[in-house]
C-alpha cells in the first residue's frame, strides 16, 4: 500500500523525471505519479481536476528553471486558487540552484513546505513522508 494517492513531478529534465519516478516507486510514495514538463502543463492539469471536482495531488515536486512557465510562475498561479480547494496540497521545490536568493524567494511562498537541492535521494523522500506525519501512523 502506498502512502499517498497522487504526486505531481514538474520538471523539464527527462533524466530527473526518470529518477523521481524510480525513487517514488521505491519508497512506495504514492499510488500515482504524474509528470509535467513545465509550470503551464501542471497548472492546466490542476485546473482540469478542479473543474471535474476530482481529487488534487497530495504533493507537488516543483523545479524552478523551466521553459514556458517556470516554477515561480506556477507558484504565482497556484496561490490564486481559492484556499479551501488547495489547502491539502503540499509543495516541495526541487532545484539544482544553490543560489541563496532562490531559497530566500521560495520561503516567501507560504505554500512551499521546503526547498530540496538536487540530487534528491531515497532518504530525502522518506524525510518528506516523515514531515507529513505519515511514517508513525504505520
Amino acid at each position: 500500500m502506498n502512502f499517498l494517492d497522487i504526486a505531481f513531478v514538474v520538471d523539464d529534465d527527462p533524466i530527473h523525471q526518470f529518477g523521481m519516478k524510480v525513487l517514488l516507486k521505491k519508497v512506495k510514495f504514492s499510488n500515482e505519479v504524474m509528470v509535467f514538463h513545465n509550470g503551464q502543463e501542471a497548472m492546466d492539469a490542476l485546473m482540469q481536476l478542479l473543474d471535474k471536482g476530482e481529487k488534487l495531488p497530495s504533493i507537488i515536486f516543483l523545479d524552478l528553471n523551466m521553459p514556458i512557465k517556470d516554477g515561480w510562475g506556477f507558484l504565482d498561479d497556484f496561490v490564486m486558487i481559492p484556499h479551501q480547494n488547495r489547502k491539502k496540497v503540499v509543495i516541495y521545490v526541487v532545484s539544482s540552484s544553490i543560489n541563496p536568493s532562490d531559497k530566500e524567494k521560495a520561503k516567501n511562498y507560504e505554500v512551499v513546505s521546503s526547498y530540496i537541492v538536487k540530487p534528491i535521494d531515497e532518504k530525502q523522500l522518506t524525510q518528506v513522508l516523515d514531515d507529513m506525519g505519515l511514517l508513525n501512523s504505520r
Binding site: 533524466i15 530527473h16 539544482s96 544553490i98 543560489n99
Partner: peptide
C-alpha cells in the same frame, strides 16, 4: 552553479 550542477546532480542520482 545551475547548469553544471543539474548535470552533476543527475549523474549522482543515476
Amino acid at each position: 552553479s545551475h547548469n553544471l550542477r543539474s548535470h552533476a546532480a543527475n549523474l549522482t542520482m543515476i
